[in-house]
Amino acid sequence: MNNALEINNLSIHYQTDSGEVRALRNVNLKVPDGKVVGIVGESGCGKSTLMSAIINLLSENAIVKNGKILFENTDILTMSKHRLRKLRGYDIATVFQDPMTTFNPVMTIGQQLTDFQHRFKERNRQQKRQKIIEMFELVGIPDPAQRLNQFPHEFSGGMRQRMAIAAALLMNPRLLVADEPTTALDVTMEAQILHLLRKMKNDFNGSILIITHHLGVVAELCDYITVMYAGEVVEQGTVEDIFYRPSHPYTKALLECDPAVLKRKTRYLPTIKGRIPDLRTPPPGCVFANRCSKVSAQCTQTAPPVVDLSDGNHWCICHEVSK
C-alpha cells in the first residue's frame, strides 16, 4: 500500500531564551492512502508542532534536527517554495485548532474562501463561490449565499469551525490534516462533521490525519492510532490494537481517563498524576518514567526498546512490555 505521508525519524527543537526545547524526538508515522490516522496525547506532547511541520509552517525559532517528511517521495522540509505553495492547500489541506482566530477579521468569508481556491484556475469567480455555497450546505451553514458576504465575527464558533472544515474540503486534498476539528462543536454537529470526514475519505480516496484529545472521535473515525507523549511516539497500532490491546502504560492510563469508560460514580474525574518532564532536558531513560505506575530502576536510566507486538503494525516503546 502506498503512503500519502511518511514521517521518518523527525526531531524538531525550539530555540528559546532558556535553552533548546526538544519538542519532537525521532517521530515515525505513516498515513496510508485512503486511511484515517489519529494522533492522541495530552497538551504539550508535540502534536501541533508535528502538524506545522507537515505543511512546513514551523515558527521561526524551530530547528529541524533530523528526519524527513515524505509526500509523494519528496521531502516537504526541503521542498522549493514553489512546490510548497502547491502542496499547501492543494495536496494537503489543513483545519486549525482555534476557529475564533482562523479567519481574517477584515475580509468577508466569501473573499477568503474564493482566494483559497487560487490553485483551481479552471474555476471562475462565480464557480468558486458556487463551490463554497455547496460545501457550506454540506457542513450545515444555513443561508450560505447570503452569509458569504459576512465577516468572521458574525458567525458563532461552531459555524467558523465548520467553515474551516469546508475550506479544507473545498480543496479536495490528497491529505487532510485536522487539529482538534470537532472541539468547538456540540455533539450533534460533531457527529455530522465526523460523518462528513468519513464521506470525504470514501468518496475522494483522500487520507486524513487527525489530531485530537477526544478518544471518541478517534474510535469513530480512525483506522490507525499514534499515541504521543512528551514529543515521542510511545505506541502505534490499528484502532482495535489501541482500544482493545493497549500495551504502553501511558496508553492504558489515557484510556482509563476517558469519562466515557467510567463505570462507577466518582467525585473527581481520573487523571494521570504528575507532569510532562521538562523538554529542555528530557530524561535519559523513558520519558514516561516519572508518572508510570510500573516504573523500575531500568526505566529511569536507559531508553526503552521498540517492542513489536504484531509484524510491525502494532508497536510500543517500553521496558516493562519487552520483558
Binding site: I55, L57, L84, R85, K86, L87, R88, G89, Y90, A93, T94, F96, D98, T101, T102, F103, N104, P105, Q112, D115, F116, H118, R119, A164, A167, M171
Partner: peptide, 16 residues
C-alpha cells in the same frame, strides 16, 4: 496571528 497561518496553509504567496 493565526489567520495569517491559515492563509499560508492554503498556499497563498507571501506577497499576497
Amino acid at each position: 496571528e493565526q489567520h495569517i497561518r491559515t492563509a499560508r496553509a492554503f498556499g497563498l504567496s507571501e506577497t499576497r
